[in-house]
Write a protein that binds this DNA or RNA. Structure first.
Length: 569
RNA sequence: CGGGGUAUAGCUCAGCCUGGUAGAGCGCGUCGUUCGGGACGACGAGGUCGCAGGUUCAAGUCCUGCUACCCCGACCA
């Protein structure tokens, strides 16, 4: 491709509304342009990358024998009413109406359409198992789209659905898909982890997320140093700590703590270890409020809390007025002693002695609190998020935390949709069987953003080779004035194209610095410079993106030398 | 959807408090000098100041309403 005939549109300035590196770089390199909130146009340059991802996904899915198809983006309301999701999906579902007043939605996912297709097409167990997939634009009316295509309302997704005669077959495909996904992310050149996203409590259903590791990721994942165990922090189970609760050693006493509102302030002003403080959180229960206790340095895990019997789901924190009415003090001075509410404590709190908490009096705290003396024996549960250094739930090693961007999710759905939509098949026994089902998603457009998030430096994007829009940038120095440079560049360009190299030849007649900066911003992995100096010496100049220094390549046999550099030899 | 903010040239923003000729930098066009890490000069194009009302002799500036976008919270590929 000649740059003069390609729509390159880079900017020096960072757009004001882009917060994270990948969003800024996608805008600055000209890959995407915002049309409206959460909706983006992909430029020719951006689309090249998107297609690279798509191609890898498609190749690996096909290799595994899964069947590509294409379902409609616009779906009739009836199907969604049948599955019960027309209401359940809530505001995220973009509903539309045609001129006759019929209701439709723009598909946010395709379980309904897929299940409808399969119930009409598949009659016999002999046709099972089968897995269909598509790569298609989805729309989810996110409450808060952000970070460019990372969390867009319209996005490109690969969604796959498998159908089975029994659970065993579903599990086989599920783990096979696990392998396919791993290969897809490996081939894309991304550092990733597969993490458990469900406790496995509900009827053998399992769900595994694939996360690209990046500090700016919105999810926290925990993984064991001593085993393969990895889980989303939200769902990472924590066992009660070993060891007995120490006997009380201190008297219960009330301390004036003027102005202290947070655990931090309590710890620094009164010189007590944070491990001997307790946070008291009031949430809505089925009847009135419920008090939840976690250690001062721990964080309440909402997903775990809302699953407790007696606690309302979704988890709702009490507002200041309700807190004051129930406890007689503001949120900064809450504590369990003398609080007339149902109480659930985290396992880590249950083994504490002589700890500090609010006194339910503004500007006062209690020190030296003990269970069994100042409070009844606690009802303990797993309530908090995992921390660095917690023992791994599988008993091997300790947990480490990392941030991740969820780019894939595989799920054993079971019969949730096949049952409500009556997707049945005749079994070997001659009877009808409801088909267990799996569903498997990859955020194709999100992968592009995640790859940048994981691979960039102060100059711009540093594409993993498999995703790069072009493999090589060919840069002539001062070509306008030098017919030799022009001719040598043109000849090399033709030879590289003939050798099948995706080369971007910058014939825009710009100053060298501008070309270097543009090509680095765009993130092209390899660059070759043609200049008078080199031609005199019979050399070309080569540099890999991210490398510190130039190398010289012989002008004679340049194509072979370049192929070796780009790993195509 | 709750809370906070912004809206002026293609982009980043000043001007608004204290009403009186529409501004800068970058980008874009032409010409010249330059040309190995985002050059310099000259000239030039480009704006219903988000929209609708109101106050005023006069509104980008003051008032009211609306809309869009951004940020902070619960969902997800």
């Amino acid at each position: 491709m000649k740059a003069s005939a390609y729509h390159l549109s880079t900017t020096r300035e960072t757009p004001a509304d882009a917060e994270i590196a990948s969003h800024q770089l996608m805008i600055r390199s000209g890959m995407i342009r915002k049309l409206t909130a959460g909706i983006y146009t992909w430029s020719p340059l951006g689309l090249r990358v998107l297609r690279k991802v798509e191609d890898i996904v498609r190749e690996e899915m096909n290799r595994a024998g899964y069947l590509e198809m294409l379902m409609p983006a616009v779906q009739p309301a009836e199907l969604w009413q049948e599955s019960g999701r027309w209401e359940l999906f809530g505001g995220q579902l973009l509903k539309i109406r045609d001129r006759a007043g019929r209701d439709y939605c723009f598909g946010p996912t395709h379980e309904e359409v897929m299940t409808d297709f399969v119930r009409n097409e598949i009659r016999s167990y002999k046709q099972l198992p089968v897995t269909f997939y598509q790569i298609q634009t989805k729309f989810r009316d996110e409450i808060r789209p952000r970070f460019g295509v990372m969390r867009a309302r319209e996005f490109l997704m690969k969604d796959a659905y498998s159908f089975h005669i029994d659970q065993a077959s579903l599990e086989q495909t599920f783990w096979e898909m696990h392998g396919v996904y791993s290969r897809i992310f490996e081939r894309s050149g991304l550092r990733f982890r597969a993490v458990e996203a469900d406790s496995g409590a509900i009827g053998g259903n399992r769900s595994i997320e694939f996360h690209v590791l990046a500090d700016s990721g919105e999810d926290q994942i925990a993984f064991s140093t001593g085993s393969d165990y990895a889980a989303n922090v939200e769902l990472c189970r924590l066992a009660p700590p070993d060891g007995e609760r120490p006997a009380p050693a201190e008297e219960l006493r009330t301390v004036d703590t003027p102005g202290v509102r947070t655990i931090d302030e309590l710890v620094t002003q009164f010189d007590i270890p944070v491990e001997r403080t307790v946070k008291t959180l009031l949430v809505q229960g089925d009847e009135g409020l419920v008090a939840l206790l976690v250690r001062g340095d721990h964080e309440l895990n909402p997903a775990k809390a809302e699953k407790l019997p007696g606690v309302a789901s979704p988890l709702t924190f009490a507002d200041d007025a309700a807190i004051r009415a129930a406890a007689g003090a503001g949120p900064g001075s809450l504590g369990p002693v003398g609080l007339d509410l149902p109480l659930v404590v985290d396992h880590a709190v249950a083994v504490m002695a002589d700890f500090a908490a609010g006194a339910n009096q503004d500007d006062q705290h209690l020190f030296g609190i003990n269970f069994g003396r100042d409070l009844p024996e606690p009802q303990a549960a797993d309530l908090r998020n995992a921390c660095n250094g917690d023992p791994s739930p599988d008993g091997q090693g300790t947990l480490e935390l990392a941030r991740g961007i969820e780019v894939g999710h595989i799920f054993q759905l079971g019969t949730k949709y096949s049952e409500s939509m009556n997707a049945v098949v005749l079994g070997e026994d001659g009877k009808s069987h409801v088909m267990p089902m799996g569903c498997y998603g990859i955020g194709v457009s999100r992968i592009v953003a995640a790859a940048i998030e994981q691979n960039h430096d102060e100059h711009g994007i540093v594409w993993p080779a498999p995703l790069a829009p072009f493999t090589l940038a060919l840069l002539p120095m001062n070509a306008k004035k030098s017919p030799r440079v022009q001719e040598a560049t043109e000849a090399l360009y033709r030879d590289l194209l003939a050798a099948g190299v995706e080369v971007l030849c910058d014939d825009r007649n710009l100053r060298p610095g501008v070309m270097f900066n543009d090509m680095e911003l765009i993130g092209i992995p390899h660059r070759v410079v043609v200049g008078e100096r080199g031609l005199d010496a019979g050399t070309l100049e080569y540099r890999a993106r991210g490398a510190e220094a130039n190398e010289e390549l012989p002008l004679d046999g340049a194509v072979a030398a370049i192929l070796e550099k780009i790993g195509r030899a």
